[in-house]
Design a protein around this nucleic acid. Structure first.
Lengths: 262, 262
DNA sequence: AAGTGGTCTAGACCACTTT
DNA sequence: AAGTGGTCTAGACCACTTC
């Protein structure tokens, strides 16, 4: 395809060794990755169309797509249907602004402390019987019921996390969807004198599955920071079990550790 | 392919709506995911060969491969070249054993506290000029040099993390590869009276890139828990900057939070 | 309307694992 | 030797975005 004068096509030439042990699509991916990491391809710049790349490299379009998929999985590229493929070097650890430390803070406080505006959108709300896992985590007795709340959490309007909260109904009293819609859940608990004083939080990294990916606006397989948290009241009774999945590209978790090395 | 009597092929039938808005490969993936999540497919059980699945479903093999790739990205399936495709439901948060809390502990202590045996394999060791990021993190003055150490960290012999450590040469004194080979780095520092008393740690979730994936024995795109940590001595001087990438499927990070809710 | 990425096909050959 | 997943091709049509 001849266009006016965009970029010399020769810029996109990548030496390919078809007889090599490393697959062609990996060679293509490495070639492009090198251009990105060395700064030859600026953030946001567009790649040639798949068909053009295939033609200049002398490989099939499917092979080019395999290479682009590989780089997209790594977060180096973003593909926009009908528009093009663009360079999106992921945020480097080094260029993160130093942020306040996360303590026993709610999502809202956490986001606010980062200088952004928190938001929530209730995806589901129900009163139900607890699962086996919830029963154990919240130290429930048989026949107790729980409130279960799923919210999309946003920062400056952008999806940041999916948060699933479970609270023992017997402890929090009556709760309806309206009460939980706008305000911070912690603020609501605080109003009822149910502020947690201790929490244990697990953090893991997982790949986004088909259910979570569309909710967060990421592609399947994107890295998510998954956290499980159980919070206790002063007296030692569990008040909340919360599981959250944060977008890996939009969130980092900060903690401070003190004490002597042992 | 007719084999003896493995599984009725009809078990693998998935209703496909070729005219639907959702792509066929997604439908296939959802059908398989449902079987896995509902427990119809036990952990470790093998799927039919790609060619067989394609034949029974009436789609091309490429389409089947797209579906399997999707599930593989989510960690539901493991594909073994020459052997087959197997069900590997990822560890659920709920079925993790409760583990001791991570404090200001070294990797070795951390792994040991989980009841496993830590190991290390030095991938590279050098004395060099610091990068701009290292200079800032370690508060170095110009012209200072650093030791840079890259190690594969293992638990019970299995790859668990890649750890990149940077230490100011002026502070730690002479260091050679032998000294750093077997022992814990923290133990070595402790011997020189250089135990950190405070650290700040950032955690994020990232997708494994082409460099890290093979080192950790995971596929490109697998979720990794990335941590950045700066440690300080009693006097407030930075003694170590460490970046680690943990396998998301083998590691979870635990922390305890105290204080009143505010 | 033109250009882009997304999906799908049918077939081929290679590389690895198991028997 | 047989069966498996891995790679690659050439071509087709669809869906979305931009002009």
């Amino acid at each position: 395809m001849f266009v006016g004068m965009p970029e010399p096509i020769s810029t996109w030439a990548i030496p390919l060794d078809t007889g090599s042990a490393t697959p062609v699509y990996v060679q293509v991916a490495q070639g492009l990755a090198h251009r990105i990491e060395s700064g030859q391809l600026r953030r946001g710049s567009a790649l040639p169309a798949e068909r053009d790349l295939a033609a200049t490299l002398g490989v099939s379009r499917v092979t080019v797509r395999q290479a682009l998929a590989l780089l997209s999985q790594q977060g180096l590229l973003a593909r926009r249907h009908g528009s093009g493929t663009f360079v999106t070097p992921p945020a480097q650890p080094g260029d993160l602004p130093s942020r306040p430390l996360s303590l026993l803070a709610s999502f809202s406080e956490d986001v606010r402390s980062r200088g952004q505006t928190p938001g929530a959108q209730v995806l589901s709300f129900e009163r139900a019987r607890p699962t086996a896992h919830e029963t154990m985590s919240l130290a429930l007795s048989p026949n107790e019921t729980v409130y279960r709340l799923r919210r999309l959490r946003t920062a400056d309007g952008e999806p940041l996390a999916i948060e699933d909260s479970t609270l023992p109904a017997s402890l929090v009293g009556e709760l309806d969807q309206r009460a939980v819609q706008d305000a911070s859940l912690y603020a609501l608990l605080q109003a009822r004198d149910l502020s947690p004083v201790r929490a244990i939080r697990h953090l893991r990294a997982v790949n986004a599955d088909m259910h979570l990916a569309p909710l967060l606006g990421v592609s399947v397989g994107a890295a998510l920071l998954a956290t499980d948290r159980v919070s206790w009241l002063e007296g030692g009774r569990p008040i909340e079990y919360a599981r959250a999945h944060y977008r890996g590209d939009r969130y980092d978790f900060v903690m401070e550790l003190r004490g002597d090395a042992r």
